[in-house]
Amino acid sequence: MSRGTSVLFDVPGPRTRLRHRIYDVAALVLLVVGLVGLYFFLDAKGQLTYEDWEPFVTPEFMVALGEGWITTIQMALTAVLLALVFGVVLGVGKLSDHRWVRLPSALVVEFFRAVPLLLLIVFIFLTYGVGGGIGSYWSVVIGLMLYNGSVLAEIFRAGINALPPGQAEAAYAVGMRKTQVMTTILLPQAVKIMIPAIISQCVVALKDTSLGFYVLAPGLTAVGRSIYTEFRNQFQTVLVLALMYIVTNFILTLIATWVQKRYVGERDQLQVGAAGLSDQDTGLADAGTRHGQV
């Protein structure tokens, strides 16, 4: 953040700078008091005892958590890979010249983006998952695929639309066919600017794998549940789970930022609005900062 040239404030003078310095110190004192207070509060509630934290330094449980973590990543990756295929098909469908392809594609995309993912997962699990069905793992993965695929379809469409129209026009002018224009001219360029948005979608998918909790799917939260039902250390388990998710997502975000810088340059990451807002994606991109996905 460049200080001084802000839309909100004028360049501060010496007196204002002094005042800000005083606020800084006051806020720091408040923060430290808060943290110390939190420490004493947790201590008074007996949350800092070794027994409560023991599972997380016990090798067996660390291995179990690691395995849960790998399952979670596996679910997210499988879902995103399937979603990519689903998304490209729907995205191309939405850009089709034929109304009978365009409308159903748009309807499918709208539907899966408007329905809560958990509702979808519960439906898939109870209808196709239980008994001799596909099981909870694949219920979650299929649910994630349908939802993320629909979001990716929008990202994909935004990526194609973000290309200069001259690209397609030039390709048509040299006599290429529609399929050729899409596969040799538009797709390769669009994919390049889509990659960071796809990685960001991995963060969303990774967070959403936790919904498998409701249908007893394996993964990090499931391991967490078995630990806290055994040791009654809910608070500590939540902190460890959160930390594992945060670190993983942070690494993914770093990769997305790096890829963005390396392959896309200065332009903002592609953004699409929530369901019902599909025509406003440019408005979001104009807003200038990455606000991430909820």
Binding site: K207, T209, S210, V238, I246, T253
Partner: peptide, 11 residues
Amino acid sequence: RNTPLLVIFIL
């Protein structure tokens, strides 16, 4: 932002 909502629900 990097924590799943479900984990905050458990919290």
